[in-house]
Design a protein around this nucleic acid. Structure first.
Lengths: 138, 138
DNA sequence: TACAAGGTTGTAATTATTACAAAATGCAAA
DNA sequence: TTTGCATTTTGTAATAATTACAACCTTGTA
């Protein structure tokens, strides 16, 4: 589902409880960051952003929270860096574009599912990564 | 380019020299393995396969050779495992399917380029990964 | 035959991530 | 309000894949 850009603490609390996740301060802040800053961050990027305002935050909390959210279907793991995991709060079917100049990752809101071919295998999941020069850099 | 299944030592030598790579024994054996066994191996998989017949082979050689080949455009790096790099000797435009049951990786010979949408960004490269149950497992 | 350039090897370092145990927190029952 | 328990967070240590690097080998050439 696609979401409004910002969801405030109370709404995030409700949402987490709905998903069976107890709404700790850290989890709320991490979720808030993801809805506010749609930058498909890695765990490390998120940690570096939040550590300024949450000096006791640990990397382990960031990793475990992101994995928890992903396992509950609230986040998608994306692998547009090759080996590094980045996270996308938008779990709808869409593709990703990464600018090889500025490094920014953009969503491309076309369903890959409809475009891609039928095969002799049973396809359950699809990931499409596009690379090139973004509209801002060219 | 797509290749015949097996290219023998002399042909591999020629090919490596053409690409500006000196044809050492290790490089020939690694290239031979890739053309003979089209299993999209990781560095580790390749190392484990070859160490039986080449007892002094080191992991470092496998990694550096695969990176050399990839940088010369003779191999494609594929990221269908998330965290692990695998290599494909077929550098033509095509997609990859991974069976989540048996782990095998298949080529899907459709050009993603033609199927995928135009965007406001300049797309130079595309990677498509499909996941599901393969024809053998279902 | 000796030398230089380049290739291979093994070990150590690095990076991203997970495992784990101790400390902190929140909540419910007494 | 305190006690106790379950859960969460934290920090450190471990792991996995990969790269850096220096020493050792090979090979071709003068």
């Amino acid at each position: 589902m696609k979401r409004e850009n910002r969801i405030y603490a109370e709404e995030i609390k409700k949402l987490l409880i709905e998903k069976g996740i107890s709404p700790s301060y850290q989890r709320i802040r991490i979720f808030d960051f993801l809805t506010t800053n749609r930058i498909h961050p890695s765990a490390e990027m998120l940690y570096l952003q939040l550590i300024g305002e949450m000096p006791t935050l640990s990397r382990t909390t960031v990793y475990s929270t992101l994995n928890l959210f992903a396992d509950k279907g609230m986040l998608k793991r994306i692998f547009i860096e090759g080996t590094l995991v980045r996270f996308d709060i938008d779990t709808s079917d869409h593709m990703h574009f990464k600018c090889t100049k500025c490094g920014e990752v953009f969503d491309i809101f076309k369903s890959a599912k409809k475009l891609l071919p039928k095969t002799e295998h049973k396809v359950i999941n699809e990931e499409v990564y596009l690379y090139g020069i973004c509209k801002n850099c060219k």
